[in-house]
């Protein structure tokens, strides 16, 4: 069933690799430019170009990554992505209504990354924020790159076997949260001036009053909440993976190849190998 998706894509493989490489370089360069160029910018109090560079660099980088990644996905993965995005949005909304001080808006992204790899996580992540921006709040759009980072990190954590033991997952989650806090800080600082919500805004203000710069304050604020949030998300994902039927898990080549969930099931492996879902 996947032969149609893989054979003609050979000519596009180099193009997709270039997209992914350029996208990554743009995101890294944007962050480095904003962090290195920030002090002079604030002193001249014309923070404007920083805001433009933050949005443009991150959005263009994220789009290139997604365009490069989406061609790799087989139909089984593409069919799963909308469910994961809906999970992100519905749980994220539910949590904000209940009033718990975490976001939990990346459960779907991490779950897809663990089942189908970083490329699928990237697509889930960016489209979550695009759809969130189209339906509930345009504020989510500039943050698309953060979900992309979460997708990539979760995918590689899965490859390294962080989901095999339930106590390793929160550690991987905390590391992911650390990175996503650092990546999202320039957006909060230069696009939104530190004010993305009541509680977070107050914390940013407190850090500024202690004498930190705006970027340092948003970074510290992110470091307070993101690692905890992602540790919880990764733990929830391990629980979901354990509860999913083994037959469903074994359908994904990424899951089988890197033995993401640990438990070897030779009988199941043979059964899926015989089925027509096998990837080349």
């Amino acid at each position: 069933m996947s032969s149609t998706a893989t054979t003609p894509a050979d000519s596009k493989k180099t193009r997709n690799r270039i997209f992914i490489a350029v996208g990554t370089i743009i995101i890294v360069a944007t962050y480095l430019y904003l962090v290195v160029g920030q002090p002079t910018d604030i002193a001249a109090s014309s923070f404007s170009q920083s805001g433009l560079i933050a949005i443009a660099g991150y959005v263009i980088g994220a789009i290139l990554l997604a365009v490069g990644a989406i061609h790799r996905l087989p139909t089984a993965t593409v069919a799963m992505v909308p469910v994961a995005i809906a999970l992100n949005i519905v749980v994220g909304q539910l949590v904000s209504v209940i009033g718990i001080p975490v976001y939990l808006d990346s459960i779907g992204t991490v779950l897809v990354s663990a089942l189908a790899g970083p490329a699928a996580g990237v697509v889930t992540g960016i489209l979550t924020n695009v759809i969130w921006g189209l339906t509930l709040s345009p504020i989510a759009l500039p943050y698309a790159v953060v979900q992309v980072v979460i997708g990539v990190m979760a995918g590689y954590a899965a490859r390294l076997g962080m989901f095999r033991l339930f106590y390793l997952a929160p550690v991987a989650g905390a590391v992911t949260g650390f990175v996503s806090a650092i990546v999202s800080a320039p957006i909060s600082a230069f696009v939104f001036g530190g004010a993305t919500g009541g509680g977070t805004g107050a914390i940013v203000g407190a850090f500024q009053a202690m004498g930190n710069s705006l970027l340092a304050s948003t970074t510290l604020q992110g470091l307070l909440s993101d690692p905890l949030d992602k540790a919880i998300v990764f733990t929830i994902v391990v629980l979901i993976l354990a509860a999913l039927p083994s037959r469903f898990r074994q359908r994904f080549p990424f899951m089988r190849q890197y033995n993401v969930f640990g438990r070897k099931a030779p009988v199941l492996k043979d059964a899926t190998a015989a089925a027509p879902t096998v990837e080349s």
């Binding site: 604030i42 002193a43 109090s45 001036g193 004010a195 940013v204 500024q208 009053a209 930190n212 705006l214």
Partner: peptide, 9 residues
């Protein structure tokens, strides 16, 4: 409120 009160510059 936050920037009026605590803006570093």
């Amino acid at each position: 409120i936050v920037q009026g009160l605590t803006f570093p510059g």
